[in-house]
Design a protein around this nucleic acid. Structure first.
Length: 591
RNA sequence: GGUCUGGUAGCUCAGUUGGAUAGAGCAUCUGCCUUCUAAGCAGACGGUCACAGGUUCGAAUCCUGUCCAGAUCACCA
């Protein structure tokens, strides 16, 4: 039984015995730092069933607990708060009981799988900072769910078809002079992205020209020759025109190669891919079934709708009057297809920006109405946009922070700081480069993941991401510091003699925080929140550094205490490494 | 206009079943490297928790209204 539960039932016991009253529940919390104690019971709520002075009641319960719970050594009462002090032995025994801190807190994988979708890029342009937030969030949540015992499939849907890619294709055909990634020495996604921008520039010129001869903005946008050609190209693609499909294949191929490079750069991976070109026709048969089930209805013009007015929403179109699919149709189809492909999937997480909150609300409702069991376990991992001081990022206008450039920039900052400090001058070039990248990525990932996903991020490229304080590099640094100690300590295999160790207040704090790690993983999994892991790690690391600077580890006379401190430091390092792996951040042996 | 999300120190953020004097980092200022890595530690300064009501022993947290910011409400994707 967990200690918390034990205390809870003993408090109920105490109230029963002393006052003859029955408590429904007991409110426990961790004791605030300014007071002596580890666990605090709040007396106020008890006043409902026990009449009297809260301080006296606290004293009475406290005395009872010290008497009856071995782990509680002392207590004090401040106002209506009963602060319980746990014995050193309790902490030492807990610490000693953990066999392996590298797996501590992680739950073995269960049978039901959850599918996590993230990234989902369009193939007409390179990945930018917005995608980076998406990818980091999705990857991290996938890792957290795994640690919490779920089987996880990471996937993405690649939006490889549609008018956007046709725009890039058309511009390349017209203005490209047969350029390829090889001839230009450009990453494929960058090359294709350039032509997307090129299309927009030329298109705007045409619009301007049409406006000058008296057309309205709207007319000009619809009638410009370039957009008509692009639309024609999309029609040809849908008809399977050989030349168009060949060009599409060629340019998408360039883009995929570019994306893979970026994913590798960021350090994320996928178990399998879905392509919109394969899935965009899915879902129509499900709509048919849905009509039979009475989930959907047909209007006079033949269009199919879902009535969500009872749920407080509008009617939603699921099939056009001409029988063609809309976005919702293929999302329904794709979800169903995924479970067909992987029957163990019992739920899905979609990592998609908050601009699509409404879409997913509707999608999930419809899937529930259709009666799929897994529809109860769908979650839209919605996140706020990443904006620049100048406003929204727009690929067409080139006002984006490119993912590759950003990583490069962070790596450079890490290099600069590292070279100034000069602690790793003996590293080889390769070792140095790997370290700079690890630190640069650590800074970036932590910077993004420590923020609650729902909040929008304002990213100012002029102000660099911090490397000090509550940052990835600070935590990496602490890990490296511990490794340095462990190297100096050499091999220590002796078992601890718990009775001869006098525990220091800082050590006790550290064990307390370590003890919270399993709950933190569960909480982060329930809330789909890497931020909880990030904040936890920071608390742990901050406490360790305070310990490190105030308590000698190796320079201790008492051999048992020295051994304990070494083992404690090693445990902290393992937890840091473990927690950071849930964020997708690596930790260095030296820095 | 309807709906959803956010508003906490100059800046970036914590604060998850309502609990004690609202916490960190950055920035500013003080100390600390002949002792385990100073990307650190110890401390100072800094708050009408957007605003106004309400619920109660107790509200940053729950409810109502207002203000501000963003998103969304297409036979677009």
């Amino acid at each position: 039984m967990k200690l918390q539960q034990k205390i809870e039932s003993e408090i109920k016991n105490a109230v029963e015995k002393i006052y003859g009253a029955t408590l429904e529940s007991v409110e426990l919390q961790t004791t605030r730092k300014d007071f002596e104690g580890d666990i605090t019971a709040v007396v106020f709520p008890m006043l409902r069933v026990v009449k009297g002075n809260p301080v006296q009641i606290g004293e009475a319960i406290g005395a009872f607990l010290v008497e009856n719970v071995a782990e509680i050594s002392k207590f004090n009462v401040v106002q209506g708060f009963l602060n319980l002090v746990l014995s050193d032995a309790y902490y030492l025994e807990f610490f000693n009981s953990v066999q392996d801190f590298s797996t501590f807190g992680k739950v073995p994988q269960g049978d039901t799988a959850i599918m996590v979708e993230y990234s989902s890029p369009n193939t007409n342009k390179p990945l930018h900072l917005g995608h980076v937030r998406n990818v980091l969030l999705g990857y991290s949540v996938a890792e957290i769910e795994k640690a919490a015992g779920k089987k996880v499939y990471k996937t993405q849907i690649i939006n490889d078809r549609g008018i956007h890619i046709c725009k890039s294709m058309l511009a390349w055909e017209k203005f490209g002079n047969e350029e390829t990634p090889a001839t230009t020495n450009l990453k494929g996604d960058k090359l294709v992205g350039n032509y997307y921008v090129k299309f927009d520039q030329e298109y705007k010129k045409e619009i301007q020209a049409l406006k000058e001869i008296g057309k309205t903005e709207e007319e000009a946008k619809a009638q410009a020759p370039l957009i008509k050609e692009a639309q024609e190209m999309l029609r040809k693609w849908e008809a399977g025109d050989e030349e168009t499909v060949a060009l599409w294949n060629k340019m998408n191929g360039w883009v995929y190669a570019g994306f893979e490079e970026t994913y590798k750069n960021i350090g994320v991976d996928f178990d399998f891919y879905y392509y919109e070109s394969d899935t965009y026709l899915l879902g129509k048969d499900i709509i048919e079934e849905g009509i039979k089930k009475g989930v959907f209805f047909m209007k006079d013009d033949g269009s199919i709708w879902c009535d969500l007015t009872e749920e407080g929403l509008d009617e939603k179109l699921v099939l056009r009057s001409d029988g063609t699919a809309v976005y919702m149709t293929q999302d329904i189809g794709t979800a169903v297809q995924r479970v067909k492909d992987h029957p163990d999937v019992g739920g899905m997480i979609y990592t998609v920006g908050n601009e699509q909150d409404y879409h997913f609300k509707v999608l999930f409702l419809i899937l529930k109405k259709l009666g799929y069991s897994w529809a109860e376990n769908l979650f839209h991992l919605s996140y706020g946009m990443v904006d620049l001081p100048s406003g929204k990022m727009k690929s067409r206008e080139g006002t984006v922070v490119d993912a590759d450039d950003l990583i490069e920039q962070m790596t450079e900052t890490a290099r600069k700081i590292s070279e100034e400090l000069g602690k790793i001058d003996d590293f080889s070039i390769e070792e140095k480069e790997a370290l700079y990248k690890m630190i640069g990525l650590g800074a970036l990932k932590y910077y993004i993941l420590k923020v609650d996903p729902k909040k929008r991020i304002l990213f100012n490229p002029e102000e660099s991401v911090d490397f000090q304080g509550n940052t990835g590099p600070f935590i990496q640094y602490t890990y490296a510091r511990i490794q340095s100690i462990l190297r100096k300590a050499g091999k220590v295999s002796t078992a601890l003699d718990l009775t001869s160790i006098k525990i220091h207040a800082k050590e006790k704090e550290l064990i307390k925080i370590i003890q919270q790690y399993p709950d933190t993983i569960q909480l982060a999994a329930e809330n789909y929140s890497p931020a909880l892991i990030a904040n936890y790690t920071y608390d742990l690391v901050k406490e360790f550094n305070s310990f490190y600077q105030n308590v000698p580890i190796l320079a201790t006379d008492n051999e048992q205490e020295k051994l304990f401190r070494i083992k404690l430091s090693a445990a902290v390092a393992e937890v840091i490494k473990s927690a950071f792996s849930l964020l997708g951040i690596d930790v260095p042996e030296r820095m």
